[in-house]
Nucleic acid binder design. Structure first.
Length: 211
DNA sequence: GGGACGATCGAT
DNA sequence: TCGATCGTCCCC
């Protein structure tokens, strides 16, 4: 298990926080049970100068309000009408910056995660699960929200002291084990398309897309 | 009121 | 590679 990350964890430059998120455990405790996974892939969005960010140009709407708030809270948005995505708000209060959580390595509540995803987990003779089944559980921002039961109900929640929180489960990932590259699915973002603000753990099989 | 679009996913 | 599908945003 490990200890919850403190408020100060989020109160530093966004790119630095994005890297620090790798290896921490995202936990959601609900009436259905607890589900959790280790963060293995993230993307930083730094408005107002980032054309890929919802807050580009300082755009401040009902949806993006949480991004302008204090660090360490959840910014949840809905994409394509059907999927939710979770961000950890970063930066100073008033600066609209956040980090998108893109993929988890499942750690707790695997059966609950599978049930929420509508998947069937097959156990081997020794009781373990196959890597292919596990990879499908929470690889991708929409899938991990589905697997952990994250919806707009969690919008604005504190990630330090709410049922949705982060734990230091293992030691920080060493810098030489962290890869970075361009973010995905932001073709509209012109010059920002190539900015290397996507981070992932080197060689980790749960990363949603290879860079 | 209406039109355009999307930080995705799953099937092909 | 392509289409689903609807909330959000912005313009009229």
């Amino acid at each position: 298990m490990g200890e919850r990350v403190p408020r100060e964890f989020f109160e530093r430059p966004t790119l630095e926080m994005a890297e620090a998120l790798l290896g921490t455990e995202l936990v959601h405790e609900t009436g259905e049970g607890t589900a959790a996974g280790r963060i293995v892939e993230v993307e930083a969005y730094i408005g107002p100068g980032d054309k890929a960010a919802h807050t580009y140009g300082g755009r401040r709407t009902r949806r993006t309000e949480a991004m302008f708030g204090p660090a360490g809270h959840a910014y949840v948005y809905q994409i394509r009408g059907t999927h939710f995505c979770l961000n950890a708000v970063s930066g100073a209060n008033g600066s609209p910056e956040a980090v998108l959580i893109r993929a988890l390595e499942p750690t707790r509540g695997l059966d609950l995660m599978a049930a929420r995803r509508g998947l069937l987990l097959k156990r081997r003779e020794d009781g373990s699960y196959g890597i292919r089944d596990l990879r499908g559980l929470a690889g991708g921002p929409g899938r991990l929200c589905r697997a952990l039961g994250i919806t707009k109900e969690q919008y604005g929640w504190s990630l330090t002291d709410s049922p949705l929180h982060l734990c230091h489960d293992i030691d920080p990932i060493p810098a030489d084990q962290i890869c970075r590259g361009p973010r995905v699915n932001i073709e509209y973002a012109e010059e920002a398309r190539e900015w290397p603000w996507r981070f992932w753990i080197r060689g980790n099989p749960y990363v949603s897309k290879k860079g």
